[in-house]
């Protein structure tokens, strides 16, 4: 084994390893949710008290096994699409890669700190858009001078000022598309080692989608890895050359985008 590895290193694969640097290694990862069902089941005060005394778990906690043994390696410079039907564990997998959900079993290794960019990630709704840009950039670790330099650029990119001066209005006055665009623009302003995008591209209008796809390509070229979760197969096709198809928390297929998309389309149409 050792000999084989040595010879591999020295002769055949050495230049190849040099050029393919892994940024995310997912090793047999299992993610389990414990969901509080809330008002369902026996929720009378007496029953709750009895549970407290007898120290049994509430019956309304249910265990959901969302990701079941996923293994893959992502390399620098790759853009990977994650597809699958609703509830197949795509978003959960992204959150595990971002380090926001613990894995029950297995491990996730990452280069640097991956940034998750999702449509349901809220900023401070009572504050104006430009204030949120400042806060978001500072929260990503930029210096105040860098933030001041990038602020106009980010507002410009998000296009929220196309219909008047929205940047100085509180974010609660924004449409859902506008705030999603602003969030994407903030996250995309920084150089990430690993950027995880959850459905964010699907919300903008066509012009914005074009711009953001262009930006994803730029991010990728500057030596990052991009993961894109989307139901919009066209945006996966345009931005990713590799696609992973998840079904019921397991990898159904992992390969070049055209092949995987063809199989996926056949699968969903056949249903």
């Amino acid at each position: 084994m050792v000999n084989l590895e040595m010879s591999n290193d020295v002769t055949v694969t050495f230049p190849r390893i040099q050029e393919r640097i892994p940024t995310v290694v997912v090793d047999d990862a299992h993610v389990v949710y414990r969901v509080h069902k809330g008002a369902a089941g026996n929720t009378s005060p007496v029953a709750a008290f009895k549970r407290m005394v007898t120290r049994t778990n509430a019956p309304n906690v249910r265990v959901v096994h969302a990701v079941r043994g996923v293994t893959f390696t992502a390399y620098r410079g790759e853009a990977i699409g994650l597809i699958g039907t609703n509830g197949s564990g795509k978003s959960t997998l992204l959150r595990a890669i971002a380090g926001l959900l613990p894995v029950e079993q297995g491990a996730v290794y990452t280069q640097g700190q991956p940034s998750l960019l999702g449509v349901n990630a809220a900023l401070l709704n009572d504050l104006p858009g430009e204030r949120n840009v400042t806060l978001g950039c500072l929260a990503m670790g930029m210096s105040p001078a860098e933030v001041r330099r990038k602020l106009p650029e980010i507002i410009e990119f998000s296009g929220i000022n196309q219909r008047g001066d929205f940047a100085s209005l509180p974010m609660r006055t924004y449409s859902s598309g506008m705030s999603a665009r602003l969030r994407f623009s903030i996250a995309a302003a920084k150089q990430h080692d690993v950027l995880l995008i959850d459905e964010a591209l699907a919300t903008g209008d066509k012009a914005f989608r074009k711009r953001s796809e262009q930006r994803v390509r730029e991010l990728r070229e500057s030596a990052g890895t991009v993961f894109l979760v989307s139901h919009q197969l066209s945006s996966v096709r345009d931005t990713c050359e590799r696609t992973i198809w998840l079904e019921s928390g397991e990898i159904r297929m992992d390969g070049p985008t055209p092949e995987v998309l063809a199989a996926y389309e056949a699968f969903t149409n056949g249903k």
């Binding site: 590895e5 591999n8 694969t13 892994p22 997912v26 090793d27 491990a107 996730v108 290794y109 990452t110």
Partner: peptide, 22 residues
């Protein structure tokens, strides 16, 4: 993890200085 290098995922991660997420 990578058929060419003959490493397990954990070894590959350790070799390139990857850290456990979170």
């Amino acid at each position: 993890a990578d058929p060419d290098s003959g490493l397990t995922p954990a070894q590959l991660a350790a070799r390139h200085g990857l850290r456990v997420a979170g």
